[in-house]
């Protein structure tokens, strides 16, 4: 007890674990990186090579066209794919959260330009292909 009192009086002098029955402090977990409060499993910056340019064009073609969207969307939102676009000279990114399982996208940093944000079946297929090109098969719940 005297030793314990001494440790309390002089923290750091006696290493933790020296006193029997005392548990070591849990290591501090690093905060998981998040995008719009959703846990990031991995991320990739699209570079200027041809494959990435094609991917970028595909993404812009989908989201730049009202016909990509319909009212058909799930009553849920579990985004498995995020996209962040930063224009030169504009500090506000255009961010997208995409939930394939719930068939819809949400935007941040801009006003959603269309009346609907659910995917058409064609859009769903295109986005699935984009996901597969980047990371392989789309897991359920993405």
């Amino acid at each position: 007890a005297a030793l314990q009192g001494l440790q309390q009086a002089l923290p750091g002098i006696i290493p933790p674990g020296l006193i029997p029955g005392q548990t070591a402090a849990a290591p501090v977990q690093p905060a998981q990186p998040r995008f719009k409060n959703f846990v990031i499993l991995s991320q990739r910056q699209l570079t200027g090579d041809d494959v990435d340019e094609d991917l970028k064009d595909d993404i812009l073609d989908i989201f730049g066209d009202e016909d990509s969207f319909s009212a058909e969307r799930g009553n849920c939102f579990y985004p498995g794919l995020g996209i962040s676009m930063v224009r030169p000279g504009n500090p506000t990114p255009v961010d997208l959260l995409i939930s394939l399982s719930c068939n819809q996208a949400m935007g941040d940093g801009f006003r959603w330009p269309y009346p609907a944000n659910g995917f058409t079946s064609e859009t769903h297929q295109k986005l699935t292909k984009i996901y597969e090109k980047l990371w392989g098969p789309v897991p359920p719940g993405a």
């Binding site: 991320q43 699209l46 989201f63 730049g64 794919l81 676009m85 930063v86 255009v94 399982s101």
Partner: peptide
């Protein structure tokens, strides 16, 4: 032509992120 703001992204830096989605 693409709808704004996607018509301004030719020189944009685009990052794609794989997110957890629904926890299994």
């Amino acid at each position: 032509a693409r709808t704004a703001p996607f018509d301004e992204m030719d020189k944009a830096q685009v990052t794609v992120l794989r997110l957890q989605g629904q926890e299994p």
